[in-house]
Simulated scan of single mutants.
Amino acid sequence: MMTNLFSSFDPSSNTLLSLNWMSALIMFIVIPPMFWFIPSRLNMLWISIILLLHNELKILIKYKAFKGSTIFFSSLFTFILLNNFLGLFPYIFTCSSHLNFTLTLSLPLWMSFMIYGWTKNYTFMFAHLVPQGAPNTLLPFLVIIESISNFIRPSTLAIRLTANMIAGHLLVTLMGNSGSMIPPSLLMILIIAQIFLLTLEFAVAIIQSYVFSILTTLYSGEIN
């Protein structure tokens, strides 16, 4: 019985060497050998998914000078997706459920977009603060609102991913800890509910990684 519900998200270790964050690097050990073998059905399925994502990201960027940018955003999608999937396995620390991990992804990306936009295309960045056709009396307020919404983008990206991963894991933890306190007649219902929640978490892991990469692509397209 856990004394604290949020202890499942505590990146602590009983050993002297903390290996919790090593789960974020597991995919770099697993994925590279796949490229040395003859493509299997799993490889072809993954290639088709990446090509589908490439076509969607190419439409969102809308800038021909950014050739190869879809490779970066597809890699970002893969990195977050695999970290979300690893968190569904028992005894593996969920990196994407902590803000220090998600902010490390969102903040440098947002900073690079802002630095590039304000140094290379500052006229467009100023024009982006004022919506087209807005009345003159509302222009000062619109500039403030647009500036605030622009500054909170990295935090909203990070909090969205973290909150969604924490919420599902908390439900699974709550239901799993209640197994020893319910009568045996209701145990099958609990197992079915746990399977349903794990399926839902599987879908959330895909959706949140997709949303993160799509929003990052949209933010990059706004600086041109």
Rank of each mutant, 00 (worst) to 15 (best):
L57Y: 02
F202Q: 09
Y122S: 11
I144F: 15
N20V: 11
L16S: 12
G117P: 03
F28Y: 01
M111S: 07
T119I: 14
S74R: 02
A205T: 03
H98T: 15
T119P: 11
A24L: 02
Y219L: 08
N83E: 01
P32Y: 00
Q208S: 15
F126E: 04
F66H: 06
G221P: 05
H169T: 11
N121L: 04
H169L: 07
G117K: 03
A134P: 08
L82D: 01
L16Y: 09
E146W: 14
I152R: 14
L107T: 14
L5Y: 07
I29L: 00
S149F: 15
T15W: 08
F77V: 01
I38W: 14
M125Y: 02
L109Y: 04
L86C: 02
S12L: 11
F212S: 03
A134Y: 10
S18E: 08
I144Y: 10
I192N: 10
T217I: 08
R153M: 12
I207Q: 13
F85Y: 05
I71H: 07
L138C: 05
W110N: 04
L138F: 09
K64L: 05
I182H: 09
S12N: 11
V130T: 10
I144N: 09
S155C: 09
L157Y: 06
A163K: 08
L197W: 12
K62C: 02
I206K: 09
S12G: 10
S112V: 05
L129N: 09
I191F: 15
I223A: 08
I59L: 04
L81V: 01
P90A: 02
F85I: 01
M22P: 02
I59M: 07
L86V: 00
S69C: 13
N84M: 00
M22H: 03
P154C: 00
L25H: 03
T199L: 13
S147C: 11
E146D: 12
L19D: 07
S155I: 08
C95D: 07
L197D: 07
A24P: 01
P90E: 02
I29W: 01
P33V: 06
I29N: 00
L171T: 13
S178C: 13
R153L: 11
L218A: 10
A158E: 05
E146K: 10
L45A: 01
A167K: 08
S220G: 14
M181F: 15
A205V: 02
T119S: 06
V172M: 14
I148P: 12
L53V: 06
M125D: 02
